[in-house]
Design a protein around this nucleic acid. Structure first.
Lengths: 191, 191
DNA sequence: ATGCTCCTGTACCGATCGGTACACTGAAAG
DNA sequence: CTTTCAGTGTACCGATCGGTACAGGAGCAT
């Protein structure tokens, strides 16, 4: 029969969309099939572990993307300002200015958290740690850098929540701008 | 037969818990029955419209509680500082220092938003408006008061997300403290 | 062309879904 | 005591759930 996708990874965008929009419980195999264009046969061929394995693959994919596109550049950037700027650009694009929800954040809020706690916890820990490291490289004291990183990562999550609830993408971008300014101010007064 | 609850309102705490923990799609009638201690018969007696009506009742109950316990005192308080203090105390208790998720925020993130968009949007609009009003009464300029109110409400939502994901209630309280300080600073430099 | 492997569609499974129907009960009202 | 009725438990409905089984077709290597 005609191949639909070349490899398992090609199914992930559709999978992510289905899970993000409907949640773990709300994403039925029919929903997932529609979102990926794949039937049960293909789905269970790529993910023998079923829905659970699909969810794990989604979480791993998101984590890998952030690791490569946000955390590592942020933690490694010679100029903290450049790393932060790159992070904010990547974040705005990834979350489509707040139109797209954060799957990690959303799943952490309910019972779905439990089976995937490690992935969700690790995601936020890594993010905060990378941002804190960038700030510290810019001369910000460790404790201040930590609370600031928490404020910013939390602020981004809150901005997603708010801009989706109010259906106002402008709010997301504006909030991102203010958070960036706070980070720059901290770097300026420290460095 | 022996009555289990005196009136419909008595079922709401269990209903809220079930929906908050499992989401709309994930909360089955069995789950809801277990959480409320009620069978299908009683549930459909109080909520002829089924699950949908239960969810609407839950959203209305949450909105009413915030209206009475947070928004109105906040907007009416003669001393903005007192109103803000009262809000933060109520918020910390209501969200159990971040252990309890915000149902409005969580539902706004996914497809559940659509059928209940009005309630969810209104909740956040009212909250931001009430906080903005309090700040303006304290002498803060309208535009600054608005962005500050957005930052604080969003910051609270983000703090819930983060403290649940990291399983760290201390983070929620600390963030609440920092947000309060920002509000006080704005009032001090304005008033 | 012939196997062989990988992928796909479909039929089917038991369990559970949300919802309905209805008989029954306890307590309040007369 | 009788009537009435709000509240309850249970049986049942069709639909859908997540998952399994398997036949078959496309593409590749030989």
């Amino acid at each position: 029969m005609a191949r639909i996708v070349a490899e398992r990874a090609d199914t992930l965008p559709g999978l992510i969309e289905a899970f993000r929009e409907h949640g773990y419980a709300g994403a039925s195999l029919s929903t997932i099939g529609a979102a990926t264009g794949l039937g049960r046969g293909s789905l269970y061929h790529f993910f023998p572990g079923g829905k659970r394995e699909m969810a794990e693959a989604v979480l791993a994919d998101i984590a890998a993307w952030f690791e490569a596109s946000v955390f590592t550049p942020l933690a490694d950037a010679e100029d903290p300002r450049a790393g932060i700027e790159a992070m904010m650009v990547a974040i705005d694009r990834y979350f489509q200015s707040g139109r797209r929800a954060c799957l990690m954040g959303a799943w952490g809020l309910g019972a779905t958290r439990d089976p995937f706690a490690e992935a969700i916890t690790g995601y936020f820990q890594r993010w905060i740690a990378a941002l804190q490291a960038a700030l510290m490289r810019g001369g910000v004291a460790a404790d201040h850098a930590l609370t600031l990183a928490q404020d910013v990562v939390g602020g981004i999550q809150g901005a997603i929540t708010l801009s989706r609830a109010l259906d106002d993408p402008g709010l997301f971008r504006a909030t991102l701008g203010r958070l960036t300014a706070r980070l720059y101010t901290a770097l300026a007064s420290a460095g």
